[in-house]
């Protein structure tokens, strides 16, 4: 599919703030698996010079700063991405050090007692892809999707105790379970094209899921524990990957000033192939 993403982030302040420094991870991955980023445009208001670099996980990071005082910053990323329904075929290679890095605990992915019990259910399955699939299905069946039950800083241990959460939380649980079983697994930040078909209340255009290293033959396989379909297909647009959410927050920044911040995010994903189809549009306000 050819999909267009319009991702707008607005920060508003009651009093003027100054010396904003911001980093964004909004550039869709290019040439990763079956995805091509056809175009990308980043606009910042008030205007600022934009710089970029590739981070440790190969994600393209853009950053800018605004010295003068201001009460509002708008960041609009517009990209066109071509996705394919079928994965490329192997054999695949991956950096051995990176794979090791994706086996350990990380900021939001913990090996607590509860996750070990969860992982133990799947320890006997000896094929990585089937193992991952069953873990994914189990999380989707067992955990309750409930926005507001957790926040962006909830760890996998907290989510295990609550038994509920959102896509980010489900991804963290799946990462913890896979890594605990010795499967290198990474967090994926991205978007999901809803196309109007996803049940109401279960869809956010901004999305998070996992990729599990399933050996040289299968390479990185995408799993989405949030949706019943379980497998990642051409509706999924990948921005970047990391050990967990902490490595790929879409926007993060600092500023000087005493005013508190109000954040508004709107993400719109539309297909450029089927004219007239309703685009999936959601607005959400993370805590």
């Amino acid at each position: 599919m050819i999909l267009k993403v319009e991702h707008s982030t607005i920060f508003e302040y009651e009093e003027p703030i100054y010396e904003t420094a911001t980093e964004v991870r909004l550039h869709p991955a290019n040439g990763a698996g079956s995805q091509q980023c056809v175009s990308f445009n980043l606009q910042v208001t008030p205007s600022a010079a934009i710089f970029d670099y590739p981070d440790f996980y190969g994600n393209r990071v853009h950053h800018f700063n605004i010295l003068q005082s201001h009460k509002r910053v708008q960041i609009v990323a517009t990209s066109v991405v071509e996705t394919a329904a079928h994965q490329e075929t192997g054999p695949f290679t991956e950096d051995e050090i990176l794979l090791l890095d994706l086996l350990a605990e990380s900021r939001y992915v913990h090996f607590d007692a509860a996750i070990q019990v969860l992982a133990d259910r799947f320890r006997e399955i000896d094929e990585p892809f089937r193992q991952s699939t069953e873990i994914c299905r189990y999380i989707n069946d067992t955990f309750l999707y409930e926005p507001g039950a957790t926040d962006v800083h909830s760890t996998s241990a907290v989510v295990m105790a609550l038994g509920r959460g959102v896509c980010q939380d489900f991804a963290h649980i799946m990462l913890a379970a896979c890594r605990n079983l010795g499967l290198p697994a990474r967090y994926v930040s991205g978007y999901l094209y809803g196309g109007g078909s996803t049940p109401e209340g279960q869809d956010e255009a901004s999305h998070a899921w996992c990729e599990v290293w399933c050996g040289k033959e299968n390479g990185w396989a995408g799993f989405d524990p949030t949706h019943k379909t379980l497998f990642v297909d051409d509706r999924y647009i990948k921005i970047g990957t990391g050990r967990d959410y902490g490595d790929v927050p879409p926007v993060r920044g600092t500023y000087k000033g005493t005013s508190s911040e109000k954040l508004g995010v709107s993400v719109r994903v539309s297909s450029l192939e089927h004219d007239g189809e309703t685009p999936a549009t959601r607005h959400h306000h993370p805590a």
Partner: peptide, 22 residues
Amino acid sequence: DPLVFRPDSVLGVAGLVNAYRK
């Protein structure tokens, strides 16, 4: 650098690591 490391740090300079990387 609160932009890259601890966001609550008031001892650093936001953007310093990127300037260094460049």
